[in-house]
Design a binder for these strands. Structure first.
Lengths: 365, 365
DNA sequence: GCAACTAGCGTAAACGTTTACCAACACTCG
DNA sequence: CGAGTGTTGGTAAACGTTTACGCTAGTTGC
């Protein structure tokens, strides 16, 4: 008596589970289950009764029970490097949107580049029995590999992946975008271009650096190793790296960065050193996060579509999940391209060559 | 025969579940369960056998089965406004860290300020049977309220909450930080201060605006309604709002913003209009996201500790979850305070009043 | 008109845990 | 030496679903 608060129904409306719905609709629980799963063989009359009972009781199925019996959790794991790097929230948003469209939930893990954390993430995803996981942390696989493989959980990686069944890899065409960037700087007259990498244990950081060196060479420029500094894809890392460059006896006239956050850090270091972008240094980022349009001045950068990335990742995962035969294995690359904004201009040494201009301070050669 | 890949054991090592562990350790499944749950009454000898079997098989429990029988999912929901606003990733990171420390997983929902999305989020969290949810979207509750209440799921809100058992509210002391901001501007000589709000359906946006107006009044300044523009807490919104202000016949000399992203949008609008910060306009943000230190020039802003927010939210949730008696109900507010950087300076009209200087550059006595 | 087939609902057995309850064993005390 | 007691392990039920299987009834074909 004391428990029946809301409904004065005589049937104890204790828990709203499938049994409650069945009772109210005067059918068996099997019929309820079939109805809500849209199995076509259920009599429309009964179905209608079920649906109205569902609506009336405000019922929805218990995901865990469902997952337990069916073996499918309808959960997709998404492992990112660092949730505080705005590129990843943008990726997460896209990823979530397409996952939800297809009836999946997502579970996020942020590794912060730490091995221990990445292990924990993997573990948690295994425990929650994810149906698949996208490792968007651009490198690092190790432990992940073995256990997901034995459980037959598909995994999609970026740039490089252990080759095993149910795993696929999304390759990014870094070269095109970076080549456009180098060309753009070369056309402006830059000959001395530095590069701030990401953490080099990350494959994609390594890949971006390799693409840069390769593009330099094919543009006929040579790389000064002193101008290749390892950063860590963060604001602080970008700032620190630029400070290292500024401490050098010889400066490059342009800097390319392994990601946009690094570039923003660089801008800050230059601001503190009272140097101007693009007058003293030209600057090119990578990723084209939304913020890039809002830096001062707006950042010239290489766009990599995170929408594309997310879409491909989910598609790959789901294609492994559904019918194994139909694996189209679209091996096309994620494209990149240069977005020119206002952090690139003529090199300072070119200006110095112009007559009657004494370049206010900092003038070298 | 064809299936026994890894272990040559005669017992079919099909699935690694609790039964497999029990078999290997030569105990019952109950003992395995007790061991891994650290029930103290199990014989150390058996426990040792169990642990080594666990290690050998690389076993871990199925979370869904566990949740199903125990009724506790060990999942905490976290609803945020917009994952692409860097404040929220920072919050998520803190929240996740403390949740994981206490043995909980988190499940994120990003509402994007849309009612439909927020409903879906709530629904998904209900379906996954979260043990509690933190609504950090600064307002909007409606549908959430009813269903979580009937399922006895604790909810923590920000700024305002429906009063019901198992719900608590985190209040933020907007006033102190904003007051410091207004005072700071007033001391510099600003008399005409504009404010760009967040979306006003959000309680906290409303609260920040109210705090601003209140602080103006108590500082003896008066508010020009034309200088109060509604933004939406995004970069684009900040830019648009500032453009509206620039279209006005009369300009304020300083702008306060309801969050940092808005302020960055404002900086961009001013950059486009070839106006300088802080020479032409002083600017104050709100939140103190990490990026605020990196804008050009670095943003003066009001810090609200998202670490604090996250910690309080999780604590409140867990205190409701554990023993109901021990509810300390710490009603203290989240504090805010001004962080002065470089977007605030003397007002332009003050400079104009000075003799013999045409306001071109930074000049201070 | 009867047999056979089909459509569609219901019963019950899983899924992998936790935990209440019971049994067995050993130890202690009378 | 026997009974009582305390300790610890095992058996089985429960959690809320899905789904294989069987059964009933209705329809059709001969």
């Amino acid at each position: 008596m004391k428990r029946s608060q809301s409904t004065p129904k005589s049937e104890a409306a204790r828990k709203i589970d499938i049994r409650g719905v069945a009772a109210k609709a005067r059918v068996s629980i099997a019929t309820v289950s079939r109805t809500i799963n849209h199995v076509p063989t259920v009599d429309p009359v009964l179905a209608a009764r079920v649906w109205s009972a569902v609506a009336e009781l405000n019922y929805f199925p218990n995901t865990q029970a469902r997952a337990l019996v069916s073996g499918k959790s309808k959960l997709l794991g998404l492992i990112v490097s660092e949730i505080t790097n705005p590129f990843f929230p943008e990726l997460i948003q896209e990823f979530e949107q397409v996952a939800v469209e297809r009836g999946y939930e997502i579970m996020i893990g942020s590794t912060n580049y730490e091995k221990k954390t990445i292990e924990q993430c993997a573990r948690r995803m295994l425990e929650r029995k994810v149906d698949g996981v996208a490792v968007m942390t651009f490198g690092i696989e190790e432990v992940l590999f073995e256990r997901f493989a034995v459980d037959n959980i598909p995994v999609v990686f970026i740039d490089a992946a252990p080759s095993r069944p149910l795993s696929s890899v999304l390759t990014v065409d870094y070269r095109t975008g970076i080549y456009e960037g180098v060309q753009h700087l070369a056309v402006l007259g830059h000959r001395k271009i530095g590069f701030i990498t990401g953490p080099l244990r990350l494959r994609s950081a390594e890949a971006r650096k390799a693409a840069f060196l390769d593009c330099l060479r094919s543009t006929g420029l040579k790389a000064d190793p002193a101008w290749i500094i390892e950063g860590d894809h963060t604001l602080d890392g970008g700032r620190d790296a630029m400070q290292k460059i500024l401490a050098l006896p010889q400066w490059p006239t342009a800097i390319m960065c392994s990601n946009d956050m690094t570039a923003i850090g660089v801008q800050h270091a230059l601001f503190e050193a009272k140097l101007k972008v693009p007058d003293d240094f030209s600057l090119v980022g990578f990723d084209d996060i939304h913020l890039a349009e809002y830096t001062i001045p707006p950042l010239t950068t290489v766009r990599m579509s995170c929408k594309d990335l997310a879409l491909r990742a989910v598609n790959d995962l789901l294609s492994h999940l559904q019918d194994s035969p139909a694996k189209p294995e679209a091996p096309s690359k994620i494209i990149t391209r240069l977005i020119v904004r206002q952090t690139t201009g003529l090199p300072k040494d070119a200006l110095a060559d112009l007559p009657g201009k004494s370049t206010r301070k900092k003038n070298r050669e």
